[in-house]
Lab assay of single mutants.
Amino acid sequence: QAKEDFKKMMEEAKFNPRATFSEFAAKHAKDSRFKAIEKMKDREALFNEF
Protein backbone atom coordinates (compact mmCIF):
# COMPACT_ATOMS: atom_id res chain seq x y z
CA GLN A 1 0.00 0.00 0.00
CA ALA A 2 2.83 2.40 0.81
CA LYS A 3 4.22 1.96 -2.70
CA GLU A 4 0.84 2.76 -4.25
CA ASP A 5 0.55 5.90 -2.11
CA PHE A 6 4.07 6.94 -3.07
CA LYS A 7 3.26 6.55 -6.77
CA LYS A 8 0.06 8.55 -6.31
CA MET A 9 2.06 11.32 -4.62
CA MET A 10 4.40 11.43 -7.64
CA GLU A 11 1.43 11.64 -10.02
CA GLU A 12 -0.05 14.50 -8.00
CA ALA A 13 3.29 16.30 -7.84
CA LYS A 14 3.46 16.85 -11.62
CA PHE A 15 7.18 17.43 -11.28
CA ASN A 16 9.51 18.22 -14.14
CA PRO A 17 10.44 14.93 -15.85
CA ARG A 18 14.05 16.08 -15.79
CA ALA A 19 13.99 16.60 -12.03
CA THR A 20 16.45 14.53 -10.06
CA PHE A 21 15.47 12.31 -7.18
CA SER A 22 17.21 14.64 -4.72
CA GLU A 23 15.15 17.60 -5.94
CA PHE A 24 11.98 15.55 -5.60
CA ALA A 25 13.03 14.26 -2.16
CA ALA A 26 13.81 17.75 -0.88
CA LYS A 27 10.40 19.01 -1.96
CA HIS A 28 8.38 16.07 -0.62
CA ALA A 29 10.39 14.94 2.42
CA LYS A 30 7.64 16.03 4.84
CA ASP A 31 4.86 14.17 3.01
CA SER A 32 3.68 11.16 5.02
CA ARG A 33 3.49 9.13 1.81
CA PHE A 34 7.18 9.85 1.21
CA LYS A 35 8.06 8.82 4.77
CA ALA A 36 5.98 5.62 4.47
CA ILE A 37 8.73 4.09 2.32
CA GLU A 38 11.38 3.52 4.98
CA LYS A 39 14.56 3.18 2.93
CA MET A 40 15.82 6.02 0.75
CA LYS A 41 17.05 3.55 -1.87
CA ASP A 42 13.53 2.10 -2.12
CA ARG A 43 12.12 5.61 -2.59
CA GLU A 44 14.68 6.29 -5.29
CA ALA A 45 13.89 3.00 -7.05
CA LEU A 46 10.18 3.89 -7.14
CA PHE A 47 11.05 7.37 -8.41
CA ASN A 48 13.21 5.92 -11.18
CA GLU A 49 10.49 3.46 -12.21
CA PHE A 50 8.08 6.36 -12.61
Rank of each mutant, 00 (worst) to 15 (best):
H28W: 00
M10I: 12
F21I: 03
N48I: 05
K41W: 04
L46D: 03
R43G: 02
E4Q: 07
M40E: 13
A19N: 11
Q1T: 06
A2T: 09
D31L: 00
F21M: 04
A36V: 02
T20A: 07
K35Q: 14
R18A: 15
F6Q: 02
K14C: 10
F21L: 03
F6N: 05
E38I: 05
K41Y: 10
Q1A: 09
S32Q: 11
F47C: 03
F15A: 13
K7E: 06
K41T: 15
K7G: 04
E49W: 04
Q1L: 06
F47L: 03
M9F: 03
T20P: 11
A19Y: 11
P17D: 11
P17Q: 10
E11Y: 09
E38Q: 12
K30W: 09
E44R: 05
N16A: 11
E38H: 08
A36I: 00
E38L: 07
S32R: 13
A36T: 05
E11H: 10
F24R: 01
K3A: 08
A29R: 10
M10D: 04
A25M: 07
H28R: 03
N16Q: 15
K3G: 06
D31H: 00
F34R: 00
K35S: 11
E11I: 10
F50L: 07
Q1E: 10
F50R: 06
K8E: 09
S22T: 13
F34I: 03
K41P: 09
A13L: 06
K8W: 01
P17T: 12
D42V: 07
E49T: 06
M9G: 02
F50M: 07
Q1S: 13
K35L: 14
F24Q: 03
A45C: 11
A26F: 06
D31Y: 00
M40F: 12
M10G: 04
E23F: 00
M10N: 02
R43D: 01
F6W: 04
E12C: 04
H28C: 11
S32E: 13
L46W: 05
S32G: 11
F15Q: 11
L46G: 04
M10R: 01
A2D: 05
N48S: 08
M40I: 13
D5P: 01
F15H: 13
K39S: 15
K7M: 13
K8T: 07
K35R: 12
S32W: 10
K8C: 07
E11Q: 10
N48C: 04
A19H: 12
K3F: 10
E12D: 07
F21P: 02
S32P: 14
K27N: 15
F34V: 03
P17L: 07
E44K: 11
F15G: 14
E23V: 03
A45Q: 13
N48T: 09
D42G: 01
K27S: 09
K7H: 08
E4R: 09
A25G: 03
N48Y: 07
F47I: 01
E44L: 05
M40Y: 06
F34H: 01
